[in-house]
Each structure stands twice: as C-alpha cells, then as structure tokens.
Amino acid sequence: MALLELRDLKKSYRAPDGTVQVVLDVPEFTLGASEQVAMAGSSGSGKTTLLNAIAGILTPDSGSIRLEGTDLAQLSESQRDALRAATIGYVFQTFNLLQGYTALENVTLGMAFGPGPDRAFASELLARLGLGDRLDYRPRQLSVGQQQRVALARALANRPRLVLADEPTGNLDPVRALEALDMLRELCGEHGAALLLVSHDRSILDRFERVVDLAQINRAAAGAVVAGATVGGNAS
C-alpha cells in the first residue's frame, strides 16, 4: 500500500479581479513508504498549495488525499492537526523557526503537539546535524545554514512517516544547499521517512532517482481559469 495517494485533487482560488483560478488539478499521484521523490515546479505552479493540502493545512475543493490509508477529507480539522503532528514533518523554504525560542525549544516544540517533547532525542538530532553546541542559541544567533539544520531537526523530531520539503534549500548557497539536501535525505533514510521535496533547482532535482514534473501531474499548472468553481483563499 502506498504511503500517500492523491486522487482527482482539485483546489481553486478567487483572484482579486473576481475570477476563479484553478491551482491544483491532480488526477493521480502516489508516494511509497520511505520513497524519496523530487517534484519539479516553477514559481506559481501550485507546489506549496499541493504540500499544504497534503499536510492538511488546506482543504481541497474535491478529490481525496490518503495518508497511510486515512482519507484526510473524512477528518475534522483537529484530527488533521493531530495527524500532521504525528505523521508529517514539514521543512519550509524560509525555515519558519520561532524567533523567541532556542534551537532546542524549536525542535521540542515541534514534538509537543505530537508524541510529546523528548529533549534527549531533540538534542541528539541537533548534535547529529552539528549543532550540539548551539542548543541554547536563538535563530538570530545562528547562521542561515545552521537555521536550516534546526528546521531539518524539527521536521524529523516526531519520527514522521512523511517529510514534506518546500524549496528547503532555496535560501542557501549552492554548496550548503547540497549539504543540507544530503543531510535531509540521509536522515529520512535513517528514520524510514518518505520524502516529497519540491524545487525548481536542477542541481537539487538531479540528486533524486525519481523526479516528477508538477506540470505533468497537475493539469492546472498553467493556471486555467474556470468560472463558477468552488473558491478558497489566495494561491501561494
């Protein structure tokens, strides 16, 4: 059984001019357990919307998202929150670390809503990423590369089944970007987590055995305009 299955997934937004813009129209997509897949997509192709829908942050207009056999559409919002906390790790392009918290707290806080804080494991993860002597540093006291590693540790702290990575190396220089990617892939492999990474950086995509072109699986990638479709917020 696939870890993640998308079927006839659709999501649209109302543009400021009142027209309805379909952002996602994915007939089918699957991701196996422990599989690592890169998804290529240019800016505005709906990749962040897709990841947010898979994470249960956004609800699609129609279609189904099955994570380990559970249809997210059948879950209440709080159940989706709980599922996300327990099953999914999320790495953002801008890291999204909490500024008032230390590196260690950022990681343990990510665990708090799932299995519960485990400082020893969080410390171990940070140490594994070369931040053993930076546990009490706040994000502003860390370099960009170090911040990204904290974000990686936070995403993996809950021992997730699936890690979603949205342009995770977009803010790093080429050398550090590849280092961060290797760390992410290695950690996912160690923890048996599947990885779905979206990027438009060819050097990143080339590292993956399986690369999916978002334009090929998302029929709305070109931004089709459909009158009368169900609407939500703004596309990202």
């Binding site: 919002e77 709080s78 929150d81 709980a82 996300r84 906390a85 327990a86 953002f92 809503f113 799932g114």
Partner: peptide, 11 residues
Amino acid sequence: ILRALGARRST
C-alpha cells in the same frame, strides 16, 4: 507556524 507543527486552534 505552531499550527503547521500540529498545534490545534484551541491550543
């Protein structure tokens, strides 16, 4: 961010 980490609205 907290919500994305799994915090509920009620939290």
